[in-house]
């Protein structure tokens, strides 16, 4: 299914404690737990790579300020 990607996020996975609040907050369901561990032993959050609508909800709810949010100047239509 094609969906619009309006932006993207970067997650500081080393800082992340895997609380899952961003995953729960994301209305586009484009964040998930990584299968990898970070050095603290958490499964950090990861962006699936497309579908971000740049709403910043993940940034709002992240208690560890791990997330940086960008909006594309020109929205990309993913495959």
């Amino acid at each position: 299914m094609a969906r619009k990607t309006l932006g993207f996020i970067e997650i500081d996975q080393e800082r992340c404690k895997g609380c899952g609040l961003c995953i729960n907050a994301c209305p586009a369901n484009v964040i998930r737990f990584s299968e990898e561990f970070n050095s603290k032993g958490y499964h950090p959050a990861e962006y699936i790579g497309e579908g971000c609508i740049a709403c910043q909800f993940c940034y709002y709810t992240c208690p560890d300020v791990c997330i940086t949010v960008y909006r594309y100047k020109t929205p990309a239509l993913s495959k």
Partner: peptide, 16 residues
């Protein structure tokens, strides 16, 4: 990633 950042506007990041 840097290519991506160039085409984007920073909306939210860690405050100074």
């Amino acid at each position: 990633m840097s290519e991506q950042v160039k085409d984007a506007i920073l909306l939210a990041s860690m405050p100074k």
